[in-house]
Design a protein around this nucleic acid. Sequence first.
DNA 1: ACATTGTTATACATATCATATAACAGTGTG
DNA 2: CACACTGTTATATGATATGTATAACAATGT
Lengths: 123, 123
Amino acid sequence: MIIEIDFNSDEALYLQLRNQIILGIATAQFHEGDSLPSVRQLADMIGINMHTVNKAYTVLKQEGYVKVDRRRGAVIAVDVDHIQAMEELKKELQVILAKSSCKNISVAEIHELIDEIYRDYIN
Amino acid sequence: MIIEIDFNSDEALYLQLRNQIILGIATAQFHEGDSLPSVRQLADMIGINMHTVNKAYTVLKQEGYVKVDRRRGAVIAVDVDHIQAMEELKKELQVILAKSSCKNISVAEIHELIDEIYRDYIN
DNA sequence: ACATTGTTATACATATCATATAACAGTGTG
DNA sequence: CACACTGTTATATGATATGTATAACAATGT
């Protein structure tokens, strides 16, 4: 999988990395059981520090997207807590949809946009 | 309008403030032409620094939610750039929906959730 | 034994956040 | 004309987050 990091972005590197990997899982570029590159390998590949990659992996573990095996490194293993995921989604949508409402975006337009994005994902 | 700030949140105070005001506009607690409290007044009301409020107002101005009048202070005035708003929405949804997909949330569930949230908003 | 794995500790530079004090140029009011 | 208020700007300080750097540790497969 190609991981693209924008060094000019205002978004933290470890968060960009986390997001890229989550997108990779959603688009089936990473599958359950796949091993991610080791923190040192990926750091060298991208050209950033080992600890920045480690931080991304730690967050992914915390959020339930990978499990860490002593020998195999970070392994894709999505832990599904449906209720918690729904609650988090609702919180995140609250402000985003408020913005959309202020900017006169209709419900229909949002539904359409979501279908368009979700088409590339698994579920 | 009641503005609630969570001092234990990891979200920056000025961003919490900005979000609260955007939510206020979306839920019609603030109307086009309404004046927001002055930076010093609101700072005293909440118990934070004047500059933190000023930063929130500056961001709101930048993002097209208020205009600043010399006499009346920050006035609600939503500048609608539909195309730009749609592009921004799409970017923001990308990662959020990837997370939802990984956590086995269906499109139907998302549509339902959006209807539920949008019911409280204007559009 | 050896190399590789994640993990932890420490240190440093930079940026962001929040506060604090102060001053400035407009603007409406007494 | 004074006065109080408005947003705005400048400067400083402390706390926290971010990214890098070097180093070491325990566990594991070859």
